[in-house]
Design a protein around this nucleic acid. Sequence first.
DNA 1: ATAGCCCAATAACCTTTGGTTATCACAGAG
DNA 2: CTCTGTGATAACCAAAGGTTATTGGGCTAT
Lengths: 294, 294
Amino acid sequence: MDLRELEYFVVICEEKNFTSAAERLYISQPAISKTLYKLEDELGLRLINRNQKPVAITAEGEVLLKLARDIIAQVQSAQNIMDEYKKLKRGSFTIAVPPMTGAYFFPPLFAGFKKKYPSLDMRIIDGGSLASLEAVKREEIHTGLIIFPPKDMAGVGNIPVTQQELVVCLPADHPLAGQAFLSLQQLESEPVVLYNDGFALRSIILNAYAEAGLTPKIEISTNQFLTIKALVAKGAGISFLPAIAVNDTDAIVTVPLEPQLHVTIGLVWNPNSFLPPACKAFIEFVQDYCANNK
Amino acid sequence: MDLRELEYFVVICEEKNFTSAAERLYISQPAISKTLYKLEDELGLRLINRNQKPVAITAEGEVLLKLARDIIAQVQSAQNIMDEYKKLKRGSFTIAVPPMTGAYFFPPLFAGFKKKYPSLDMRIIDGGSLASLEAVKREEIHTGLIIFPPKDMAGVGNIPVTQQELVVCLPADHPLAGQAFLSLQQLESEPVVLYNDGFALRSIILNAYAEAGLTPKIEISTNQFLTIKALVAKGAGISFLPAIAVNDTDAIVTVPLEPQLHVTIGLVWNPNSFLPPACKAFIEFVQDYCANNK
DNA sequence: ATAGCCCAATAACCTTTGGTTATCACAGAG
DNA sequence: CTCTGTGATAACCAAAGGTTATTGGGCTAT
């Protein structure tokens, strides 16, 4: 008893005529005949009385007719629902949004995307960029708007969305606060406040120290952006943050680094993973967004 | 999207392993693979993520899984229902029961059948035996427990259930009431009370008159058994009824006919019609019933 | 490392089945 | 009493669903 048989049966019942049922189904009349016999044999019941003209539905046929219509309607509805996922009328995906990108770069993307696809849902996953990248690679998270780590973006799909310059953050009363720019060498002896392990900003900064042949004095680590700023303001150490993330009201002075140090913020995903259509739509949206804002 | 595909999909989801899903379904692993791809292509959605081990269900797959389970359950239930019709756990049929048979011959058959098949229903259709026979031939009624007409039972399936002798019914004060038996010749001048047209008893009696070369004086016709007896009792005319149908309390005297006149009561159906299993069961039951009461 | 294993994908092939055309048989209408 | 409409049947064909054999990628254990 399969759906095709039930559908044919319902049409036969509606047409009360094998020939016109066949026409409505765009198949030949013998196909109808054969299929109905097959269904009847499977059930061990006669569903249609061919002696009458027009053909009549038996009592058992009448019962099956109702059941068949219900089944077909349910299948129809299931198909519609699934089609909505395909057509981006429904759907959701997970996106890693570390604190830094969440505060400055994610909101406009989210707003734009939501405007284009109001019925799609994003589930935001917190976590550092590095940890998020690993989760994306392991396919635990569909995508992430992260700070790209210093190296090794091979094997992940990515779209750089923006580049930001890291600036030195000093307490307002710091002796070096007045400089036009600073090098890491000048800062080597300064205690540093960093993000925890698993955050890209930490590894980018450590990487920069290492490349300069220097070793930073890591005073303390946290994964709270506001905590870092507060610690710097209170003189616990210096730090390095994207210029956009610090403003005058923070009781922090920013000085450009020399040579400049940049971080790239962008979208990443696992190219081998089969992403939900909703997520593909978001990636595409971000792609367009970057192309248009160039 | 057919039932087979949905079933395979559900099993894959349950096993989270194509190979063991194939085993559970008694098919080969490539068949599973192929069918799932087909379903995914039809929907335009990835349902299973094969990158993970064990394979993981995607968000869309999770949605379809629920829908598919519902559909399969509904089909299952439909199959069960239809199977109950086949297995005589459900079902009904129509049976013509004219007044005479309804009063004396149908009740024991009904009781016995209902005992054997408590959940089957009969719908009793009223009407004369002749009219019922025609309705059965036209397949408007599945079967009938009727008085067989004088001739022409060809072309209908039938089981004679009992034979009854017709006796002359006279008002108690009738001059011929004391006779040991009576011939139609002796009764020719008597007004007769008969069933209406369409009732077998009428045509059997008219037939007997005709065969004896006589013409009855039909006083009045009715299709109410009790009315006939009342009319006879009041002296409106004589009548002929099965002996079993008249007793002493009726203020009617019965006298055997000479030569005897018999009516056969039995079951009839259209052998070309496809009867509901319930009706077939009843016919079979009556067949057994007669065989055992011989 | 690397050999071995698990497991899904793929290829080539076979069998069943759903569909086709042509034709028949039969009932009912003109 | 032929003609028309309609379902059944036969013979045949193409596609679908299934099979076995094999490949290849990712893990695990040595």
